[in-house]
Nucleic acid binder design. Structure first.
Lengths: 258, 258
DNA sequence: CGATATTTTGACATACCTCAATGGCGGTGG
DNA sequence: CCACCGCCATTGAGGTATGTCAAAATATCG
């Protein structure tokens, strides 16, 4: 388990995106909005569709799934959240969510009352623009997911999600180009890709045979990152990474004419 | 063609959602942000992925598609915009878009410079929260699209999109429970649903045979709205409609215990 | 009224799903 | 430390929804 360098609960928020635009006083103001820190066990649904919300949740440690379920018990993932994500900030302007939030691993979360956000709205327009920006990152990822599920075959689809998770974890210091801790079951992965667990299993077998990635024992090993990016036709423009974050690893090299 | 009652270019913005929260002075302030009105011909791409943006676009009349294209020329729709939608307001916090914007019909659009939005940020926090809200509606629709494409069969999938468009057009006065003008080709519809045009054609045939909807000559006739909602398992919670808008037609009746 | 885009139909291919059984790993308690 | 139990991963056989390719019919536009 990697230790966070800074003491701040918000230390990973917007890391690798527009964090440099966060002035120290703004960061302090945001940090001060976190009135409580809680630990949730794995596989716990803590926000349900339609429930009125008075708090938003900053994810400090752990993984969270956003999902919608059918009456027949089928589940479609609509997002995956990793440390640094302001999981349900959109609950503040919306008032309730259209989907559920469930922990995948045990999680540490910070609670931010909506009244505090209203104070920021009035007093800190520049910070608010960054908060707004962070909710739009989710929307951009949603669009990529629509594209992925709508037009890509199963194997590149899974590969693409792995590329996305790698890029997002890398910028918050939780992945290297060699791999990362990976708590998703094949069931979870399938739910995020619109696939059954059985077919997800077969896809992972082909990705391993192709020498791209290997998933085992809650760990994902990247065998060939450029090959994986090619196979998935991964272009990280939609993640709105800072230039620095893109140069630090193979992420985004393709766009720079490699 | 329906005539807009009010003279305001923004008259349909947030109509049926939280428009009542827009105070008259806020509406005026927003209207004053529109520095230019233009007409675009049908089938014109006017914003491309990655291009730096200095304006956002309010759609006054016409239909617009948001989409991502593959290298091989396949297209996946990631959103459809109808009058009243602030099409690329998210370009303001993001700086550029991750997708393209293309007109489907000829369109009237209002241009809003980002500097004007920055002034609103500083001076009108309450209005900004409503603008933020409106961008999150897109995100909520994206999530529903992920669900639709990931877990529903082709026929309910198309039916669900039709339900969504009906609900959205109804609240801005462009649809009745009998139907609405429908400029999408079967190709367009397929692109929005992750289907081929051939299969979309077959799906529309079955929806007609089931007595649900009939699409012909740029017009969509609803034959059985409750039946359509049932078939699509349509629940409009994700559209964040005002209570009034939900009571005015069959939209949302199901949620009220019908 | 001709040209072009769109819709419709058919035959065939295939990617993914379903159901079902087996195998392996990890945690828990004796 | 070992044995058990439950979850998760893996494999197989067979079905089906949707895609592909191609041609004909029909609408739309200039």
């Amino acid at each position: 388990m990697v230790t966070v360098a800074s003491e701040l609960l918000t230390s990973r928020f917007l890391m690798g995106r527009r964090r440099r635009q966060l002035r120290p006083d703004e960061l302090q103001a945001l940090e001060a909005c976190i009135v409580d820190v809680r630990t949730l066990p794995a596989r716990t649904t803590f926000v349900t569709r339609g429930e009125p919300l008075a708090f938003s949740t900053l994810l400090i440690e752990g993984w969270i799934s956003r999902h919608r379920d059918t009456a027949e018990g089928q589940r479609q993932g609509v997002g995956l959240q990793v440390p640094g994500d302001f999981v349900d900030l959109h609950g503040y302007p919306l008032g309730y969510l259209d989907h559920d939030l469930t922990t995948i691993t045990a999680c540490r979360i910070g609670l931010v009352p909506h009244e505090r956000l209203s104070i920021l709205m009035a007093e800190r327009p520049h910070l608010v623009k960054l908060l707004w920006f962070s909710t739009l990152l989710d929307a951009a990822m949603h669009r990529e997911w629509i594209f992925r599920i709508g037009r890509m075959g199963a194997a590149p689809r899974v590969a693409h999600l792995i590329c996305e998770l790698h890029a997002r974890l890398a910028i918050v210091g939780l992945a290297t180009d060699a791999g990362f801790d990976f708590p998703l079951t094949q069931q979870d992965l399938g739910e995020a890709c619109g696939l059954t667990n059985v077919h997800t299993n077969r896809v992972l077998a082909t990705l391993r045979k192709r020498g791209l990635v290997s998933v085992a024992r809650r760990r994902l090993d990247i065998l060939d990152l450029p090959g994986l990016h090619d196979f998935a036709e991964f272009d990280p423009d939609y993640l709105f990474l800072e230039d620095d974050a893109r140069r630090h690893s193979a992420i985004g090299r393709r766009a720079e004419g490699g």
